[in-house]
Design a protein around this nucleic acid. Structure first.
Lengths: 185, 185
DNA sequence: CCTCCAAGTCAACAACTGTTGGCCAACACA
DNA sequence: TGTGTTGGCCAACAGTTGTTGACTTGGAGG
């Protein structure tokens, strides 16, 4: 009545979600069409609507994301910066949800709002737990995000040649100290 | 014959270009429609086609951009980082072409290619002129771009609250040293 | 056997897109 | 006066989009 009990089959439901994440990551929000997502999942476009209602809610479901930030209190303070950039490098290359979120967030306000929420809910608390001066945490978290997102933007989305060519070890050696300074400098 | 001599009126031609830059900056490439641009310019959509041929070429014209990088050899080396971030902050807030380029570059391959070209043609040479070791210039330029673009992304596009709230002076004090290290560290 | 219902397909809708070609008004010049 | 030419508008095209509702299938339960 109040909440309809929709028909469902977990298998195709998951297939839709996977295809959606791929398309949103590759094409962004507007160019990823319901039809292309359905084709990738091997089903009819109408199924996508039946399972997720509309495109906006499909994106919301596909963009559910956990940064899986490490517990900094279990890591020597001197290694925080390097561990963080290494973590994000690995995360970015093994979960296309981040790419979907960033590509969509640049042109779609709802996706941008989602990124802000994830940032506030996951980055903030991680830093607060180990902060000397809580008052500076938001600024430090923001600067952290700016360097990490900027590197990902240049490397995975814009494909700036010199940034693409940087090895993982080099990236850690260059960017680790930057994050370190933003965290405790 | 071979090349048609199109009808033109510099006034409306410029109005179209200005409206296009605004729309591309606000909406990105796919959501900025010829019709909305024409409406902003107060003319008929067909005029846009007559003056610029098609959407892709209109964007190419609207995304013509000069970073106006300062000549580092005329600045004390110790100030390079702060001067650069201050310059970009000012540039970003006074020319929406950068926003148009970034918003479009994230979902449109031609726009991304344009950003790569601008980067290679304007950032590389500026650093080469004052470099000790030319071999490291591309990497340094790439890291520079990652921090600057990342900050702009968080501040002007995603609108992460703590990054939006940072004052210009704070931004210069935090990010200047980062760029300094990427340049000569 | 029949019945029922979830799972899925099909065809169409209205809106919007980039793009095209024909038409009109005004002015320049002979 | 007539004749181009320039700058602009209008209406329509073909294709694509998100979305909807009616139809078909296939298996489980009686």
């Amino acid at each position: 009545m109040s909440e309809d009990k929709p028909r469902r089959s977990e298998a195709t439901r998951a297939a839709i979600l996977m295809a959606a994440r791929e398309r949103f990551a590759k094409d962004g929000y507007e160019r990823a069409t319901i039809r292309s997502i359905a084709a990738d999942a091997g089903i009819d476009p109408a199924m996508v609507m039946r399972y997720y209602g509309n495109k906006e809610r499909l994106f919301a479901a596909a963009a559910e994301f956990d940064l899986r930030l490490p517990d900094l209190s279990a890591i020597p303070q001197a290694e925080w910066g390097e561990r963080l950039i290494a973590h994000f490098l690995w995360r970015w290359e093994n979960d296309e949800t981040m790419m979907a979120l960033l590509r969509a967030g640049v042109t779609n306000e709802a996706a941008a709002e989602r990124m802000r929420t994830i940032f506030a809910a996951q980055v903030g608390p991680t830093l607060f737990k180990v902060a000397d001066d809580p008052a500076t945490v938001p600024t430090r978290a923001g600067l952290l995000a700016s360097q990490i997102l900027g590197f990902a933007l240049c490397r995975y989305i814009l494909g700036l040649p010199p940034v693409v060519d940087i090895s993982a070890e080099e990236a850690i050696r260059w960017i680790g100290p930057t994050l370190q300074r933003y965290l405790i400098g």
